[in-house]
Design a protein around this nucleic acid. Structure first.
Length: 135
RNA sequence: AGGGCAAGUUGUUCUAUCGCCCCGAAGUAGAAUAAAUUCACUUCGGGGAGGAAAGUCCGGGCAACACAGGGUAACCUGCCGCUUGAUAAAAGCGGGUACUUUUCCAGGAAUGGAAUCGUAACAGAGAGUGCCACAGAAACCAGGUAGCCCUGCAGCAUUGCGCUACAGGGUGAUAGUGAAAACGUGAGGUAAGAGCUCACGGAUCUUUACAGUAAUGUAAGGAUUGGGUAAACCUCAGGUGUUGAAAGACCAAAUAAGUUGCGGGUUAAGGCGACCCGUCUUCUUCCACGCAAGUGGGAACCGCAACGGGUAGGUCGCGUAGAUAAAUGAUAGAUAGGGUCCCGGUUACGGGAAGAGAAACAAAACCCGGCUUACAGACUUGCUUUACUU
RNA sequence: GGUCCUGUGGCCGAGCGGCUAGGCAGAGCUCUGCAAAAGCUUGUACAGCGGUUCGAAUCCGCUCGGGACCU
């Protein structure tokens, strides 16, 4: 596996942006996440999440993973990651609001576990479901 | 004209909304700082994947380390000329040679010539070694199974020719085989035979002349006349220092100048990143004993190895695409082309309808060139097939 | 990003140019009242495509698949 992105929201924000600060980039944090994080599955996506004490700018840092083993072509991996990222970007607002209220920070990884590339609508549905459960 | 195949060229449109990466400018009662300034945010402007970005099969740039010299090994390449940054190699273009497809011509045959299609890892098997299963007499300094011929001896037969067995010798014409069998045809010759000899033809090597930059070709002369395999070992010639961007430079942070072992002066250790020759380098300090050479001892120091510990963050390298877990997407709509159906028409084509709608292969991670592989549609060329008309 | 190894029946695994060993598994038969065990018999493979060679699993090239290493 190998890709991740992070999302950060400045201050109040409400927009559907997805900046670099919102992506999970630190190798240390990643190792920590996979070692201690909890996971759950909603086909075709598996989510790994962990509350973190680190002082982040945004309530959540997220990364997206598509295993090379299932998808040999870089093109296919990119496409799936983009679809997941897009779904996350458009639906993260509710999660942000909730976490801001609770004053908690979180790191997240979404791993694509399907055997074949699914349509955007399928991915979006699964991702919304994931977010709802996690938060 | 349609379909199919092959090769080459090309290889993707517009609008809206929400977003992504990089650069620049301006702004902010924002954050850090003494300040310069940096960061953040907002607005505006600009730029943002491919012909293969792929496979990583070649080469170059670039970088670090190494480097007196000679030889060996290993690896790569192998007709000639020109071109590109690139002597060699790779690639492109042209040429040569060999083989091959088709057609034609000459010949009794072997074979040769001309045109044309294609192929070639295209130096050497007149240096050596190895291998060539099965079949076959024989598979490589050829052989002797059958056959043919000669001689000797024995037997049979006999007017005579002869026949049979054995022994010795000659022979390579005939012979099933095989991927491959010892130049082809004819004549002479012989006991039978043979390039043994001759004629014509073929092949290999070579000398000279001429043509060509060259590979090579042509002609004449001479010598020779038994295979294959070098993508088997090998020989010859040319080339190759090693490692690669995870190369490498700098900064910051952190930790323990930690532990153990071995070595540190003569037939010692180490370097010359494979090996050898050869050559070069290293020839310390303290303590005790001794006049000295030297001996003994531990420690320091140096080198190597193992164990253990810490950090694994930033800048540069790095690009008017450009990150450092890696940017081009999503949604909605519109068209081009194509597909389906209906009508007219012999086709070509023309008109109309509904619904779908940009869908091939595939996404840069230092850069460049070549090769290979993948690929819808469009265009061009060639081949093939079908239909219609003449 | 770079470097390298590897691919033989359903599975494991020999085979350094000449009909592709062997074991396990499968099928049939023998044996048994039935089965197990045992014995006998039998089917099935060189990843794909080209090239070199008389002949290729083996040598060479390309493609595909599997794996390892370098930070």
């Amino acid at each position: 596996m190998r890709k991740s992105k992070k999302l950060s929201l400045p201050i109040k924000d409400l927009s559907n942006t997805f900046h670099k600060q919102e992506r999970l980039c630190s190798k240390k944090q990643m190792d920590l996440l996979f070692e201690k994080g909890k996971s759950q599955t909603a086909y075709p996506i598996k989510a790994v999440y962990l509350e973190t004490p680190v002082d982040l700018k945004h309530p959540v840092q997220a990364m997206f993973v598509v295993p090379k083993r299932q998808f040999k072509r870089a093109h296919d991996r990119n496409k799936l990651k983009r679809r997941m990222r897009e779904a996350y970007r458009l639906n993260k607002k509710k999660a942000y609001d909730t976490l801001l209220l609770k004053d908690k920070k979180m790191i997240l990884a979404f791993i694509y576990i399907g055997k074949k590339a699914e349509e955007y609508s399928v991915i979006e549905r699964a991702l919304i479901k994931q977010l709802a459960i996690i938060i």
